[in-house]
C-alpha cells in the first residue's frame, strides 16, 4: 500500500508530520503518535535500529531539559540540580519529538526509492536535471562507503596508526579524505561524458519510462492528511 503512494505525497506527509510533532505539546498525544509510528514501522518491516547513537541522542535531549530547564515541583534533589516535574515532562516531550521524527524518516525512506521520488518530483515541476541528482548521488554514496573502508585498510597496512591522540586522528582524517576526494573528482569527467553522450539535458523535459503520476487516490490521501493534521492540532489545543 505505502509503496504505491506518490512519493511526493509521502514527502509532504513527512514534512507535515514534522510540523505536527513540534506543534503538539501534550505528552500523551505525542505518545499516541509515537505508538502509531511504531506500528507502521513493524507493519511495513521498516529497516532502522534504535541503536546506541540514537539512544545517546535521546538521553542527551532528555537530560538537557532536565538539567537546564527546571520547571514546577521538585521531584528529586541530586545535589547539582533538581529534577522537576515540568522538566521531566518537557524531556519526554522533546525526546518524543525526536523519536517520532526518526521513525517517520525511516518509514519514508523504507517505502520510497530515490528513483520514484526523483520522477515524482519531476512530475510536480522540478526540472529533471535536478531531480535526477538524487538518483545519481544515491548510486555513488555506497561506492564511496566501500572505498572508505578500502582506503583505511590501505593506510593501516602501510603503518598509519589509528591514533588515540589528536595528532594521529588528524593524520588519519587527512589520509582518508584526500584519496576519497581524488576518487570522486576523477569520476566527474567520465560520468559527465557518459551522461551528455546520452543526451542528458538535450531538452528541458524528458520522457519517464516509469512515470510517477498524481492520481485521485493521492489527492484523496493529501486531503485526509490535511484533515488529520488539523484534527491533531485541535485535539492538542483541547488537551
Amino acid at each position: 500500500m505505502m509503496k504505491g503512494v506518490n512519493p511526493v505525497v509521502k514527502l509532504m506527509a513527512l514534512v507535515m508530520g514534522a510540523v505536527i510533532v513540534f506543534l503538539v505539546d501534550s505528552v500523551w498525544l505525542l505518545l499516541c503518535f509515537v505508538l502509531i509510528l511504531l506500528v507502521f514501522k513493524v507493519m511495513y518491516d521498516i529497516k532502522g535500529r534504535f541503536g546506541r547513537s540514537i539512544l545517546a541522542l535521546v538521553v542527551a535531549i532528555f537530560l538537557a531539559q532536565v538539567i537546564f530547564v527546571p520547571e514546577g515541583a521538585v521531584l528529586l534533589d541530586v545535589r547539582l540540580f533538581d529534577i522537576t516535574k515540568g522538566a521531566v515532562e518537557n524531556g519526554f516531550l522533546i525526546s518524543g519529538r525526536f523519536f517520532s521524527l526518526i521513525s517517520m524518516s525511516w518509514i519514508f525512506v523504507g517505502t520510497t526509492s530515490p528513483r520514484d521520488l526523483s520522477s515524482g518530483l519531476a512530475n510536480v515541476g522540478v526540472p529533471y536535471r535536478f531531480s535526477f541528482l538524487l538518483i545519481l548521488a544515491m548510486r555513488f554514496a555506497p561506492i564511496f562507503q566501500f572505498e572508505l573502508s578500502n582506503v583505511q585498510q590501505a593506510q593501516r597496512i602501510r603503518g598509519l596508526k589509528v591514533g588515540k591522540d589528536l595528532k594521529g586522528l588528524i593524520r588519519s582524517v587527512r589520509y582518508t579524505t584526500m584519496p576519497l576526494l581524488y576518487s570522486a573528482m576523477s569520476k566527474v569527467n567520465t560520468l559527465a561524458s557518459s551522461m551528455e553522450g546520452r543526451a542528458f539535458g538535450m531538452y528541458r523535459e524528458k520522457t519517464f519510462l516509469h512515470p510517477v503520476r498524481f492520481t485521485k487516490w493521492d489527492a484523496l490521501l493529501t486531503i485526509s492528511l490535511i484533515i488529520f493534521s488539523v484534527e491533531i492540532y485541535l485535539l492538542n489545543r483541547l488537551l
Partner: peptide
Amino acid sequence: IALLSALGGGL
C-alpha cells in the same frame, strides 16, 4: 554536486 554530496553523505 552529486558526487561531492554522495561523498559527504556517505562519510
